[in-house]
């Protein structure tokens, strides 16, 4: 197995802070901590190349740096990317994490190591396996064997690593599927017995706490307001031209309602697979009330109805996708001078 190792200017022996602007340099074979890692992995894997990059250079030119590293990956074609360990060096940790994210985007695994309070962990924990280290390089003696152990296990298990505690990486805050020994119903009864007896038990899903935003100040008047319609009810032009998924949506749609006073069976339908679609397919105004908003526009109750509506399917769609859609839609509404939005859900 061929490993590409990413390290900073300090561990690449280019110098300290004064060399932090060192641009990306590709070297054959291991450098600095890579030497010990290579030795520990002898017979299993080999560091074929090392990237040395200054911490300031990376963080101040992230886009360029990522592009450069991508080119190197395309050229070197590693099987695994290793970064760091970064200990508690913030810029280094962020760079290692970002390299891990790039690797994930390219379908490559990445193993790194850092201190849990390094901002690189929180920012990028979902896209790399991160070994926990202490907060200073004095921990190198332990960090390298720990990373080598994880890499060896990764190779042995053909990339199918077990859970964080057993393998020795920090939790990635990901929900990972696995087959349990007992079926769900039996585990539920075991948990019931434990809870009844006041014994310790571990929930399989810790319930989340959702974030909050402060309420936005009210509009002074509706008369000049431009109102937009947004829905998670899956209303789309007939035929679902962008093929929005019936569940677990990967995209949202943006459609014109210019000149449309009413949604009809001939013009619109729902793409949503999570509710009885018969009523919405007959008259999509029951999910996206274009008809009455057009009336209110004509009567001058509102300034105008925004001529585009935004739609996705809220059925089994992950919060991460929803957040992304929401941010993009909000930006588009702001750019279009929309004053307020009505969001309908099914």
């Amino acid at each position: 197995m061929r490993i590409l190792h990413y390290i900073n200017q300090f561990f690449g022996q280019k110098g300290g802070e004064e060399a932090a602007n060192h641009p990306i340099e590709l070297v054959e074979g291991p450098v600095g901590p890579g030497g010990a890692l290579n030795a520990a992995l002898a017979g299993k894997a080999e560091i074929s190349h090392t990237i040395i990059c200054g911490d300031s250079y990376f963080n101040e030119n992230e886009e360029v740096a990522v592009m450069g590293i991508k080119e190197i990956i395309d050229q070197v074609k590693p099987d695994l990317i290793v970064a760091g360990p970064a200990f508690n060096a913030g810029r280094y940790g962020v760079a290692c994490g970002r390299v891990g994210k790039l690797a994930a985007e390219l379908g490559l695994p990445c193993i790194t190591g850092m201190y849990p309070e390094n901002p690189g962990y929180d920012l990028y924990k979902q896209t790399a396996y991160m070994v926990e280290t202490k907060n200073s390089a004095a921990d190198m003696r332990k960090a390298i064997p720990n990373m080598a152990k994880l890499i060896a296990s990764f190779i042995e298990k053909d990339g199918k690593l077990g859970m964080p505690a057993e393998e020795g990486y920090m939790p990635r805050n990901l929900r990972i599927n696995m087959f349990a020994e007992k079926r769900g119903a039996a585990r539920a009864v075991d948990m019931l017995i434990a809870k009844l007896g006041g014994e310790e038990f571990t929930t399989e899903y810790p319930m989340p706490v959702f974030d909050r935003v402060a309420p936005f100040k009210a509009l002074a008047s509706l008369k000049d307001a431009k109102i937009a319609l947004v829905t998670s009810g899956g209303v789309v032009p007939k035929g679902n031209p962008d093929h929005i998924e019936s569940s677990s949506a990967q995209k949202y749609g943006e459609y014109s309602i210019e000149g449309i006073d009413d949604l009809t069976e001939a013009s619109h339908e729902t793409a949503h697979g999570g509710y009885d679609p018969v009523k919405c397919n007959e008259n999509s105004d029951v999910v996206l009330p274009v008809d009455v908003l057009r009336d209110l526009e004509k009567e001058g109750v509102i300034g105008s109805l925004h001529n585009m509506f935004y739609t996705t399917v809220g059925n089994g769609t992950s919060v991460s996708n929803s957040k992304k859609f929401g941010a993009e839609i909000a930006q588009k509404l702001l750019d279009a001078g929309v004053s307020a939005a009505i969001l309908t859900s099914t």
């Binding site: 959702f210 974030d211 909050r212 935003v213 402060a214 309420p215 936005f216 100040k217 009210a218 509009l219 909000a330 509404l333 702001l334 929309v338 004053s339 307020a340 939005a341 009505i342 969001l343 309908t344 859900s345 099914t346």
Partner: peptide, 20 residues
């Protein structure tokens, strides 16, 4: 920009943090 959420299952809207 203020947003109003028209929703049937009000408790979910409250849990996830809609304001109006």
């Amino acid at each position: 920009m203020p947003v109003v959420h028209i929703v049937t299952v009000v408790p979910i809207s409250v849990t996830v943090g809609a304001n109006r």
